[in-house]
């Protein structure tokens, strides 16, 4: 079974590398949105520092939504998903592997870019570490919860907007806790409580989402 999951991991990675152009789009969007803010609101260091964490998080959520559809779309359309389901592989685990690859190729690069964007928005070091911690704990949650909605909408022709409408309200708590953590860090206050709450949400999603994704995909088949 491990061999099976490894095979899926390698295949998804190989496919992602061949579709580089598609992967770059959300990343470009992320960088562009954030670099437009200093131009739009003016280069006042205090203003930028104040809105910085929120801007980065909103941009991260929106750009992850842009790339989210890729997760199951091609596999659904070409029938790979059918063959996966009929291979006897445990679908929840298969979904975890697919979400992991998706996170690695389309969201992890955003985290790597975040130091640069922190400089754009005049974040200090304490704020940057807090931002990095919230991104590392929070973005897997985005992927896991997002995958459930992708699974549900994969059979629809124009699922893109519906996906955003379904997901944005769900991501509100994450956004609040994440930006609150960075705000706390800017005031030199501890932010472990916020981080703990996001971590708790992540663990809950990790326990429930794989089963939900597998079920959503099954529903989309019929």
């Amino acid at each position: 079974m491990t061999a099976m999951l490894m095979a899926i991991f390698k295949r998804d990675l190989a496919l992602a590398i061949r579709q580089r152009a598609e992967l770059l789009q959300p990343m470009m969007f992320f960088v562009l949105v954030i670099s437009l803010f200093p131009l739009g609101v003016g280069p006042g260091p205090e203003t930028l520092q104040k809105i910085g964490p929120g801007v980065i998080w909103v941009a991260a959520i929106l750009s992850s939504l842009l790339g989210m559809e890729r997760l199951f779309r091609d596999d659904f359309q070409d029938g790979t998903l059918e063959q996966l389901m009929l291979s006897g592989a445990p679908m929840p685990l298969v979904c975890v592997v697919k979400v992991l690859v998706h996170w690695l190729v389309s969201i992890f690069p955003l985290i790597l870019l975040s130091p640069l964007l922190g400089v754009f928005l005049n974040l200090n070091l304490a704020m940057y570490w807090a931002l990095l911690a919230t991104l590392l704990v929070g973005t897997p949650l985005l992927s896991l919860v997002g995958a459930v909605a992708v699974g549900l909408t994969v059979g629809l022709q124009k699922g893109g907007v519906l996906l955003a409408l379904l997901l944005l309200p769900v991501f509100v708590p994450l956004l609040i806790f994440a930006t609150a953590a960075v705000d706390a860090a800017s005031l030199q206050l501890p932010y472990t409580a916020h981080l703990g709450l996001i971590g708790a949400m992540l663990l809950l999603a990790f326990a429930l989402a794989p089963v939900a994704i597998a079920y959503a995909l099954k529903v989309s088949q019929s």
Partner: peptide, 23 residues
């Protein structure tokens, strides 16, 4: 089935090898 279950961005060998590993 009607959908072939082949990834268009992989070649024939890669597709079949993946299917074999899966099954």
């Amino acid at each position: 089935g009607h959908k072939l279950g082949l990834s268009l961005n992989l070649n024939a060998i890669e597709n079949l090898r993946f299917w074999c590993q899966l099954n």
